Amino acid sequence: MTSATMLLPHAHGGPVAQARLKACPADFKVFECMHVLPEGEGEHLWLEIEKTGWNTEDVAMWLAKSAGVHRLSVGYSGLKDKHAVTRQWFSLHLPGKADPDFAWPDGVALIQSGRHRRKLNRGTHRANRFVIRATDFCGDKLLLESRLAAITAEGIPNYFGEQRFGRGAGNLVRGREWLTGGEAPRKKALRSIWLSAVRSDLFNQVLAERVSRGVWNRILEGDILQPEGSRGLFCADDDEEASARVIGGEVHPTAPMPGVAGMASSGPCREMEQQILAPSQAVIDGLCREGVDEIRRATRLPVQELQWSWQQEREGENCLELAFKLPAGAFATTVMAELVTTMEPSA
């Protein structure tokens, strides 16, 4: 069984209401939070673009074609939803060239631009800000607000969202088949997508077990910990104050995204991880053959700057509007899953 086919356990008791998500693109807004902005000079033109109904790669292709450059001359930091209103940065390598005069297509608009010395690379932005409207809300408002307060104080399990696995979990299914002797991806881009889906699923399985045991936000002996806002790792057993630091939110437990062995947990933590991952050993062996390095990801996701308000849509219909910030690589849908059972229109 994979995390895409299992019901992932909730940390705060499960949804307390029903609502509709993404009734229209404007109900789901995403804004990149950049810590690097264009300096005003250089060979790279940085563009902050608002898009609706376009995926990130399609915008990158359009920019390359319109500017008359190779696709590899276009950079971006992260992938953003197609069925949403999103703002994100792109860069164009234009050595010795003037800024193009773009005729922007429907659904794509320029917010600001500037020159910079470097290309915009994947993972440059550190966080995303979300504004989400959950319409047709049906449930106990006071109970939901109590749940929101708990999430503000304690965070949520840092699951990968279903978007990571492709439509109908197709990327996960094909990735597992490939790694255990099936057909390899025909396109280079699919390789990383399938590998990511497989490793994300294995992480989710370990995290689900930690949630079930009530230790997704607490230390297990032998844990590997990660400081908040850092990619560094250290052994919990090496810090006498580790348990208190985890409870205080200063550091977080982690779980593996398997591959070629890296920094490993030990003791009871290692035993639990091995028990959960044992049925997928053939898949993990395939990851190792592909040269993928094991990394670890925090099991707890702090939800920053969480705010909410109630709006009246039509007579008798309520709307919950949420605004919050998450680190890059985290999923807003995992926040919503702790609050409401959502009805999302099919694409």
Rank of each mutant, 00 (worst) to 15 (best):
S243T: 14
P279V: 03
D285P: 08
A255V: 06
M272R: 10
Q275M: 10
R270N: 01
G259H: 01
A261I: 09
H252L: 11
A282E: 14
V283F: 03
A278D: 08
G262W: 09
M272L: 15
R245T: 06
P279S: 03
G259T: 01
H252S: 14
G286K: 06
C288R: 15
S265N: 01
G286H: 10
E240S: 13
E271Q: 13
E250V: 13
M257K: 06
R245H: 09
G248R: 11
A244H: 06
P279C: 05
A244T: 09
C288A: 14
S265C: 10
M257E: 08
A282I: 00
E240T: 11
Q274T: 12
A278M: 07
P256C: 03
I284V: 04
I276P: 06
G262A: 07
M272Q: 14
Q275R: 13
V246K: 02
S266Y: 04
Q281S: 15
E240D: 14
A282T: 07
M263G: 03
E250K: 09
A261K: 09
E273V: 07
G249V: 10
E271R: 05
D285H: 12
M257C: 12
P279A: 04
P253W: 02
A282P: 05
P268S: 08
S243Q: 12
P258H: 01
D239K: 06
I247C: 10
E273L: 08
I247H: 09
S243C: 12
S243L: 06
C288Q: 15
A278S: 13
E240L: 13
E250M: 09
L277N: 01
T254C: 07
